[in-house]
Design a protein around this nucleic acid. Structure first.
Length: 345
DNA sequence: CTGGGCGGTACAATCCTCCG
DNA sequence: CGGAGGATTGTACCGCCCAG
């Protein structure tokens, strides 16, 4: 059944998006990132959450990695650029959504093609069957990100291939990442360091509040692999016992199944158009690449120093690997979950 | 060439129904 | 009443065009 555009539903989502909200605490932000990697909520909560996360990540990176003065400076510049972009995007999003909300309430809006217009010309995509979102215009910046990991080129390339095989795209011959998950920004640019072009792309109205899409182009790298080539490379390395590209591919397109891992069921399932290239086919466009606790062990080992970064980023999929491979971590996690459950009950 | 605007859509993630 | 699988929703990935 095709989703029908409903003005009542739009109004509900706009109210949620514009609801006054306090900025979240760092703990709340990290809890959201650990849960499913995403940040949702009113505009006044989501943008500050992104800022808080970026500040946290940069601070942690500085504390964790040995960096030269110049590299630290670049990191702080990157953080400041992100903050400025996010706050500018927040203002623009708020202004646009407010104008649209007013038009919806007053009944002064007008539909044309895929767009809903407010009287002042502000518009939003509302096409049937697609996500309602506004485009953020002119909020972009150049920045540089240091080479934190300083790994040998051969190892770096293996990680890059995995991202390319999953979430990484291409724009004008350069690698790009568009994401609504802040941990992915840092996990990715650490492997595509150097000159970046950052762009706040759009703000989507979801049932749980808005989400923000950030696009980053790595200007210092050429895109060397097509999607299909990268997937073949991952499969080939894996056939010969290489787990490194599989780790980043799993971070991108792996199925996160925390419940199964917590109940002792260990399966590495990856989404792919041609799943047979990767392993046993388990349902439409899904491959069971490996199973057993050892598979998660291999992924954790393959991470090496990259694992330290994923640790501090609190990436939800990395947490799954840790839950599968670290008994103390799993026990602490279950204890925390139980406490939360008790409080609620 | 790069940056930016516009838009399209495949498919992953999540929700929810319904069947045993 | 749990969970398989279908339906819905959101995101990730893509391409084209234009200006500077």
């Amino acid at each position: 059944m095709e989703r029908k555009f409903s003005i009542e539903e739009l109004r509900r989502r706009l109210e949620l998006a514009l609801r006054p909200a306090e900025p979240p605490s760092l703990d709340e932000v990290l809890a959201a990132v650990e849960r499913n990697g995403r940040l949702h909520g009113p505009v006044d909560r989501v943008f500050p959450a992104w800022v808080t996360y970026s500040e946290y990540a940069v601070q942690k990176i500085v504390e964790t990695f040995q960096l030269a003065e110049e590299e630290r400076k670049r990191l702080f510049d990157f953080r400041d650029a992100m903050k400025q972009l996010l706050l500018e995007a927040q203002r623009q999003a708020k202004a646009k959504l407010t104008a649209i909300y007013k038009a919806v309430v007053d009944g002064t809006y007008r539909m044309e093609g895929n767009k809903l217009y407010a009287p002042d010309g502000t518009w939003m995509y509302v096409r049937e069957g697609f996500t309602q979102h506004i485009i953020i215009h002119g909020v972009s910046a150049s920045a540089r990100f240091p080479n934190l990991l300083k790994m040998p080129n051969e190892k770096l390339e293996l990680f890059q291939i995995g991202w390319r095989a999953s979430d990484e795209g291409e724009m004008g011959g350069r690698p790009v990442m568009e994401t609504t998950q802040p941990w992915q920004v840092f996990a990715w640019i650490s492997l595509r360091y150097g000159e970046l072009h950052i762009h706040v792309d759009s703000v989507t109205l979801t049932r749980k509040g808005v989400s923000v899409e950030v696009a980053i182009k790595a200007r210092g790298w050429m895109q060397r692999w097509s999607k299909a080539e990268a997937i073949d490379l991952v499969a080939n390395y894996f056939k010969h016992g290489g787990w490194t590209p599989l780790l980043t591919m799993w971070l991108g397109d792996g199925k996160a199944r925390r419940g199964e891992v917590l109940s002792g069921e260990y399966k590495l399932v990856i989404a792919a158009k041609e799943p047979w290239r990767l392993g046993l086919v388990v349902g439409a466009e899904k491959a069971l690449v490996a199973s057993g606790k050892e598979a998660f062990e291999r992924l954790r080992e393959a991470a090496g120093a990259y694992g330290e970064l994923l640790d501090l980023l609190r990436a939800h999929k990395w947490i799954e690997i840790k839950l599968a491979t670290n008994d103390a971590f799993r026990a602490a996690y279950k204890l925390k979950a139980r406490k939360r459950g008790n409080r609620r009950a």
